[in-house]
């Protein structure tokens, strides 16, 4: 479980053909950019979840 949680943001960051597009836009920002920027805090969340489920000392 721990490894899957860590793998998800990694895969999401390199499926480039999936996010290489303009629409849907957000505040005039193309999808490519706001997707990647949103993925940054989301990746943090997944690492935190991995720590919680893996029983790592935090």
């Amino acid at each position: 479980m721990r490894y899957i949680l860590l793998l998800i943001p990694c895969i999401a960051s390199v499926v480039t053909p999936f996010y290489n597009m303009t629409d849907p836009m957000l505040f005039g920002i193309p999808f490519f950019y706001w997707y990647l920027m949103l993925l940054i805090p989301v990746s943090s969340l997944f690492i935190w979840l991995a720590a919680k489920t893996g029983g790592d000392d935090l």
Partner: peptide
């Protein structure tokens, strides 16, 4: 640089 710096933390 963005996917790069996402990949390093896991």
């Amino acid at each position: 640089a963005v996917p790069y710096t996402i990949l390093i933390y896991p």
